[in-house]
Amino acid sequence: MTALEPAGAATALHYPIVDIRGLTKHFRVGRPRRDLVALDGVDLAVEAGQTTALVGESGSGKSTLARCLVGLLPVTAGEVLLDGIDLAGLGSVALSRTYRDIQMVFQDPHSSLNPRRSVYQAVTEPLRLHLGLDRAAQRARARELMSLVGLEDQHLERMPHELSGGQRQRVGIARAIAVGPKVVVLDEPTSSLDVSVRGQILDLLLGLQQRLGMTYLFISHDLQAVRRVADRVCVMYLGSIVEDGPADEVLDRPRHPYTRALMSAAPVAEYGVRRERLRLAGEIPSPVDLPAECRLAGRCPYVRDSCRTAVPPLVTVEGTHRSACPVPLPS
C-alpha cells in the first residue's frame, strides 16, 4: 500500500522531509469550463529541520500549494512525499496517521478558531482525534502546550473572543504542534497581527523550532518576516517557482526580475532610504489559458523574443540558488 522511496538520503544531515514533485492543481472555472492553473508542475524540496519560505503575491499559488500539501485540496497531478512516503498512495487510515506529521497554522486566528469552543477544547481536539489520549493525559498535555507557546494555564478556560490577536495565534500554534508534527505549514501566520506582536510570534516560532526540531514551510508576502525566520526562500509567480535558494542569497542578490520587483517594492522603515525600483508593467494576468511563454513576459522590462517561445526552466545560478530567468540582468 505504501510506496516507500529509498530513504538513503535520510542519513545525511539535510534531507527533504517534504518532497513535492510536479505538483499541478487546476480549477475548473467559468462558462464554458476552462482550466485555471493554480499550480503548474511545482517541484519543491523542504529540508528537514529548516524553514523554507514561500513568497509571492496574491494569485501566485502559494496558499493553494499549502492546502494541497496538508490534504485540504485534492491535487490534479504530481506527487507529495512526506518522509519518503507518497501521500497519494495511502488509504484513509494510513493517511490520517500521516497527517499527524503535518499540521497547519492559518492566517487569521480569529476565524480559524471555533468561537463557541474554549481554548482547552481547541487544543485537546487533535489530541483526542489523533492520539486518543485519556482526559488526564489531555489535561497535562494542554498545560504543557500553553507553556510552550507562552500562555498561562488560565488561558485554557478562555473563549477565543476573550483573547488578543497575538494570544489567539499562540493558540493556533499550540493546536498545530499538539500532536507533535514533523512539519508545520505556516500560512501567513503574522499578517493579521500588529507589528509589535509580529516579532513576538516569529520569535516564538523560532524558539519552538529549536526546541522541537520541526520543519517549517512558511508562507508569507512579508519579506521582513521571511528574512527573520527563513533558511531557504522560494519565490512563486502564477503557479510556478521562479527563483529559490538560500534566504540571504535570494533576498540580498535576487536574480529573477519578479523577485527584484518584489524586493524593491517592499517599503523599509528607515528614513532616507532610496530604493532602486524595478517596475513591472500592469498587473498579474489571469491564470486561465496561460500561453507557453515566460509567465512574466508581458510585464518584464527585460523581456526578449526568446522569453516568448517557452516557459524558461529553473537553472542553477550558484550552489543551490536557482532562477527561471536566462536573461542576464544588470547587477
Binding site: 507589528v195 509589535s196 516579532g199 528574512r227 527573520r228 523599509v268 522603515a269 528614513y271
Partner: peptide, 20 residues
Amino acid sequence: LTPTDSYTRTLLAASRLEAK
C-alpha cells in the same frame, strides 16, 4: 532618526526585524 518616546522606539524596532 531621533525618536524620543519609548513606544515609538519599540514600534521602529518591531518594524525592522533582524535576519535569522
